[in-house]
């Protein structure tokens, strides 16, 4: 593997790590609840991308793990160039369930806005929450 390929691969991994750190900053430090929701979604997407990245193979004739037509040689060919199917199966449910949980959080934010007339955590903290 050449140096440039290694550099690009490390760049991809480190950029994802940086995205995770930025979204953690957004979750922890931004006062607005809607902004916290956006940061939470970015964190979830980046984590999913990481999981997929672990199942990838850095070769050129690479294929998704689906067989077009069954034959003995076709299966051998597929095993030579297919990526790992297990992380993909885990991530599909994670995306849809994460969306459902996000909808639940959004409804909670609307409820907070009805009660306190604000979505700013500093404003809400004035009402005496511990």
């Amino acid at each position: 593997m050449s140096l440039f390929e290694l550099f690009l691969w490390s760049f991809v991994v480190l950029a994802l790590v940086a995205t995770v750190l930025i979204s953690l900053y957004g979750i922890a430090k931004r006062p607005n609840l809607v902004k916290k929701l956006i940061a939470l979604t970015i964190l979830g997407d980046t984590a999913n991308l990481f999981v997929i990245l672990f199942g990838y193979r850095l070769i050129y004739p690479v294929a998704p793990p689906v067989l077009a037509q069954w034959s003995e040689s076709g299966v051998k060919e597929l095993l030579r160039k297919a990526v790992d199917p297990l992380p993909q199966a885990l991530v599909i449910t994670a995306i849809v369930i994460g969306m459902a949980v996000n909808i639940f959080i959004a409804f909670l934010i609307i409820q907070a806005h009805r009660l306190y007339r604000s979505v700013d955590t500093r404003e809400i903290a004035k009402y005496g929450g511990e």
Partner: peptide, 10 residues
């Protein structure tokens, strides 16, 4: 990354 299933959902 060769995950067409996930592209469709995502």
């Amino acid at each position: 990354l060769m995950a067409p299933d996930i592209v469709l959902a995502y």
